[in-house]
């Protein structure tokens, strides 16, 4: 099954790069080019100031976004005035960026444009809701460097991760690091009854005690955990961290005698601010981690070329990653036509 038809099963997609120059834009263009244009509407935007014609950090050339007729796109006023396509302006949104207001337009004749849309998770959600009025079938968010939040299931149902030599030129390390992130995305959902109890909680650390009662540990965040360490580990069957999960909190659970009896729950993988070592230690000790919301990871795309010119062997890299991740892995630049 091609991953384009897999994407069409969802209403929203985020593309997240593990590092700059991992081929995120190439991947986006590839998808935009191959999605059907008849009876299928797409709206696309990019988080923050992505979509520059030159990479801001390394100065390497970066492809522009190529849009087809009928596609809706949202970008800043400044980028809109520099567009290289014919489009009909349909909305000036209430969102702002450093490059002016964010506007939405419909492409009348295909061409190139730089995308720089809303920059916070909340404004991306508003954007996604806002473009619904144009009856779009799919919203695509081009996520930004190290902004995993744009891949949150709260924003998009499905996800594509791009990785590559820019992330690490040591192939073993690249595979291991990617596997770690993919592992976080793949954390299973908690059982429905547990999800229902925690879903609407927006602050603090909560638990379900051994009698099934809901407990508020009165913690502002998992950063201030030392105060109520024993309360949390002694009598809970489930512990829910509504905000960021940190090493300190995770280690506290790992170090507890009851580590195997507690199910630790986080909202989604973007709230995992833990190091790989702490997470592995937690798993080794028999810890259980679940999420409330999970995105469907459709594919991992790799770019074997690093900005400094190092080129990894594409075939070997795709093979190794595919084996480690048990997921489809594509080098879009090289073998785009065969997917």
């Amino acid at each position: 099954m091609s991953f384009i038809s897999e994407i069409q099963k969802f209403n929203s997609l985020s593309i997240v790069g593990l590092e700059k120059n991992t081929g995120k834009t190439v991947c986006l263009n590839y998808i935009l080019d191959r999605l059907p244009s008849q009876n299928y509407k797409v709206a696309v935007t990019s988080i923050g100031i992505d979509g520059e014609s030159k990479d801001q950090v390394t100065g390497t050339a970066k492809p522009e976004i190529i849009l087809k007729e009928g596609t809706y796109f949202s970008t800043s006023e400044v980028y809109y005035s520099r567009r290289n396509l014919l489009s009909e302006l349909v909305e000036i949104t209430g969102e702002r960026s450093s490059l002016g207001r964010i506007v939405t337009a419909k492409v009348l004749r295909g061409g190139k444009v730089m995308l720089g849309g809303p920059s916070s998770a909340a404004s991306l959600r508003r954007w996604k809701e806002g473009v619904k009025k144009f009856d779009v079938d799919l919203t695509i968010i081009d996520g930004a460097l190290s902004r995993m939040s744009s891949g949150s299931p709260a924003i998009s149902e499905s996800l594509i991760i791009t990785t590559g030599a820019a992330y690490s030129i040591d192939m073993e390390r690249l595979v291991r690091r990617t596997k770690y992130v993919v592992g976080l995305v793949g954390i299973d959902k908690a059982e429905p009854s547990v999800r229902d109890r925690f879903m609407d909680i927006e602050r603090g650390v909560w638990g379900i005690d051994l009698n099934g009662g809901l407990v508020d540990f009165h913690l502002e965040s998992s950063l201030t955990v030392d105060k109520v360490k024993d309360d949390i580990t002694k009598n809970s069957s489930h512990v829910f961290v509504s905000g960021a999960l940190t090493d300190r909190f995770l280690n506290m659970i790992s170090d507890s005698d009851r580590v195997k009896d507690i199910v630790l729950v986080v909202r989604d993988f973007t709230k995992m601010f833990v190091t790989e070592e702490a997470y592995r230690n937690f798993l080794r000790r028999g810890g259980n981690l679940r999420v409330l919301q999970k995105s469907r990871l459709i594919a991992v795309c790799v770019n074997p070329v690093s900005p400094r010119g190092v080129v990894l062997d594409s075939g070997t890299l795709c093979g190794k990653l595919g084996e480690a991740l048990q997921l489809p892995v594509y080098d879009i630049v090289k073998c785009g036509d065969v997917i």
Binding site: E77, Y80, S81, L89, I92, R101, V103
Partner: peptide, 11 residues
């Protein structure tokens, strides 16, 4: 005026 200005006025 650019397209954004003209859109505003039409709106």
């Amino acid at each position: 005026l650019d397209d954004i200005d003209l859109f505003e006025i039409k709106y």
